[in-house]
């Protein structure tokens, strides 16, 4: 469940024989990215990949389990300063900070992947249908989505998390679902608006003229042309989702501490330590949040610069001509007989 990639590997519905080519076509602007966009993209990707590695291999990287307070019969010190056995020190609950930070990456990525995938699966088809069919369906969906949009996102997530905790408890999925609701309207809006403008294109009318059903028009003609902005929002939303998750955890509405390690919860427990000069319990989870959010944001901005045709600049290469042979060298006026 922990594997993920934030790269825009889109078009799962492309036919298989041309699938490889299709993906290469989509990725070609990424490969040809230059300058700042390239730096942003690769820096962001590097940071994100670091956290992905931490998340996937957490049990091997972390020295202890996230809820372990003793090893070999010896209990860990309470609020112990960083030393050789506990690289980042221990918390007030005698838990190893380094292990909790590593396992926290796993929780964060699980929640981000789940919430982004679910909101994609719900938001994109809804946007396509709403934009293409229009009419009362479009109006009511836009109304609902705008209403969701108008809510402060954290409040919405808290309310949903509160409702879900009664149903499925404070699991990772519950946290992901409460975050999902915040992002569905974003995908919906972007996809719906691009669909509304793309459906006026001649090739959509041409598809109707060859007898394609509405579902075919949406799947084969509109989908591939309107999802291009989705990877960018997906990556930027992922960054935002980390913050929302941490906020939920901080407020006590996120993942239950028994279920998984969570940076927001750790930060909340560290609030009291800060006044006593115990800096390590708060610093490391906080640093992890900042780093991962920065990485995902950089990757998102880099993707935006490379994929968004209104921002994209094609590099100009200098044309170097071989020197002309003397006989063909251009003559000036004075040389003329």
């Amino acid at each position: 469940m922990s594997q993920l990639s934030v790269e825009p590997v889109e078009e799962p519905r492309e036919p298989a024989p041309q699938g490889g080519r299709g993906i290469r076509r989509v990725l070609s602007p990424v490969r040809s990215a230059r300058g700042i966009a390239r730096i942003l993209l690769w820096a962001g990707a590097a940071i994100s990949v670091l956290f992905v590695v931490l998340a996937v291999f957490a049990p091997w990287i972390a020295p202890y389990r996230f809820d372990q307070y003793s090893a070999g019969g010896h209990p860990f010190p309470k609020q112990g300063a960083p030393d050789a056995t506990h690289l980042f020190g221990t918390t007030v609950q005698s838990l190893d900070v380094a292990s909790r930070v590593v396992f926290g990456a796993r929780t964060a990525l699980e929640v981000v992947v789940q919430s982004v995938v679910i909101s994609l699966l719900v938001g994109v088809p809804l946007g396509l249908v709403s934009g293409y069919l229009g009419g009362w369906l479009d109006r009511s969906l836009v109304l609902v989505m705008d209403a969701l949009f108008a809510f402060p996102s954290l409040l919405l997530a808290i309310v949903l998390s509160f409702l879900l905790s009664g149903l499925i408890g404070g699991t990772v999925t519950a946290a992901a679902l409460s975050i999902t609701v915040v992002y569905i309207p974003q995908y919906f809006r972007v996809v719906r608006n691009t669909t509304v403008s793309a459906k006026e294109a001649t090739y959509v009318e041409a598809a109707r003229a060859i007898g394609a059903r509405p579902i075919t028009v949406m799947r084969r003609y509109l989908f591939t042309n309107v999802v291009q902005s989705v990877p960018v929002i997906g990556t930027l939303n992922a960054a935002d989702a980390i913050l929302t998750l941490a906020a939920l955890g901080f407020l006590g509405y996120g993942v239950q501490p028994t279920q998984a390690a969570e940076w927001g919860y750790d930060l909340q427990r560290a609030v009291a330590d800060a006044g006593a000069g115990i800096w390590w319990t708060g610093l490391y989870p906080g640093l992890a949040i900042v780093l991962l959010v920065t990485g995902l944001t950089l990757a998102g901005e880099g993707l935006n610069e490379t994929l968004n045709p209104t921002l994209r600049t094609r590099p100009l290469r200098r044309v170097l001509l071989p020197p002309l042979p003397a006989t063909l060298a251009p003559r000036t006026h004075r040389d003329r007989p």
Partner: peptide
């Protein structure tokens, strides 16, 4: 320039009416 789906290769695009019908 506008009558063909920019994201569909020619073989698929031209064969699509056969598939639809």
């Amino acid at each position: 320039h506008a009558a063909l789906n920019p994201a569909m290769d020619l073989g698929t695009a031209i064969g699509h009416p056969l598939r639809i019908h």
